[in-house]
Design a protein around this nucleic acid. Structure first.
Lengths: 242, 242
DNA sequence: TGTTTTCATATGTCTGACAATTATCTATTG
DNA sequence: CAATAGATAATTGTCAGACATATGAAAACA
């Protein structure tokens, strides 16, 4: 079956789109083997390089995997959470860093979503997630910790909070919001007093989650949101003044 | 400057990763022109096909755009919301459809996030978004509407609700959650009574948003969540019984 | 000065070749 | 007969070189 393409536009993009659509609508199920490169050449009436460029596009989106050898080929890949997380974080991070999204907007989005998560986390938290949260709080209190390491620990703390909700879809959706904030947070230099304040709020939050107190957790998150905004304001206005 | 690669692994993937890292960490700023394909060949000591496959991988992630001609080349692309939306929706949809995420989990994630959005939407809604919501409610009431069209309108309604919060980051994050549900919703056949119930709740929700009544909006969304789950339950148990 | 032509440069595509990997078949040998 | 070693075929990965096409800039010309 020959598939027609528009010769004036990018051929490899068109081929990739055709195959991608087939994967999304289920025509090509998971683990199905695509035709070999040579067969695709014939089907789309293009050269092998063009077919290969199309396949690489799909591989970049984790839609296919390839195997060499006799029974090899390109196979529809089951999109796993790890790959999806990675893509989501890359996209979210770039979206924020390239579009000069102001800190307040990103911050609002992040804490709004986290607050939505907190009631579920309070209800379903396991000792495992609580231990992670406590461990990160401890790390945040260590002296000599760099700002970057402090931010990284902050992200880990909040990821644990989200994961405690035990809903992988929710975790996936929030991964972008939480992780993408890190580069923005890294622009802030935290004073010792700032850190103390954050650590105290983190402790309050962990306690509230441990006690399954959703109302208190929400209150703490609101405070954390406004404190974070205030710190950012201080830093940015000071920087603008110079 | 020659960059060393591991010759035993996929060369084009390594080259793509190297350039991607440079874009993410800001070494290559937006609109910067990458070296020409020939120059990249020399830099990585590979053939042009390999370089091109690497560039196509980056293009698939909307990280670069290419231009032909004398002053052409590959340029770091500013990731815009439209591209980010599209990628997010593709990834989310596939994640749900390929991993047999059960309806309840996906539904919980979606409504949890939407409920987080509702207070902001109630505060900031404009006549524009309200009009979209009302228009979709009207469409949902038309007789002879297919299940698919009903679901599509449902998605449009909820997107308008989310967009009313006027936080593009939030809209982006929720796009995945809301749109990815559509294929799952399409598996449900709605009875006329189901539709009436949903339309009534949508109307209540639109009214609550119009009156800036966040508490009422949250209540309606909770009801909508449990009703949706109940409908899905009915359908799936009936289907399992056959 | 304004227009057309030419040219240089870059990506897009094609062809053909060889390398590397791997499952399967085949022959050999104990 | 069974186990092993080797040949074989299919498939992706990489390379080299060519031509097509698009496009901005310089050169030639009116």
């Amino acid at each position: 079956m020959k598939t027609k393409l528009d010769p004036s536009a990018d051929l490899s993009a068109q081929i990739a789109a055709a195959i991608r659509d087939a994967i999304i609508d289920g025509t090509l199920p998971v683990d199905e083997r695509l035709p070999s490169e040579i067969e695709l050449c014939e089907q789309f009436d293009v050269s092998r390089s063009t077919v290969r460029e199309a396949l690489k596009r799909l591989a970049a989106q984790s839609l296919i995997r390839t195997q060499r050898g006799a029974t090899g080929g390109a196979f529809v890949k089951r999109l796993n959470y790890a790959d999806a997380y990675a893509q989501q974080i890359t996209t979210s991070t770039l979206l924020l860093s390239m579009n000069e999204v102001d800190f307040a907007t990103a911050c609002e989005a992040r804490f709004t979503l986290e607050r939505a998560c907190a009631p579920l986390s309070a209800k379903r938290r396991t000792p495992d997630h609580l231990a992670t949260m406590r461990a990160e709080i401890h790390r945040q209190g260590q002296i000599g910790l760099s700002d970057e390491a402090f931010c990284a620990s902050d992200v880990a703390f909040h990821r644990a909070l989200v994961d405690a909700a035990h809903n992988p879809v929710l975790s996936y959706q929030l991964a972008g919001a939480v992780e993408a904030m890190q580069p923005l947070m890294n622009m802030i230099t935290f004073t010792a007093r700032d850190r103390d304040k954050i650590i105290r709020l983190h402790t309050d939050l962990a306690n509230a989650i441990e006690q399954e107190n959703a109302v208190e957790a929400d209150r703490v998150l609101q405070t954390l949101a406004s404190e974070t905004n205030a710190m950012a304001d201080t830093v940015f206005t000071a920087r603008a003044g110079r």
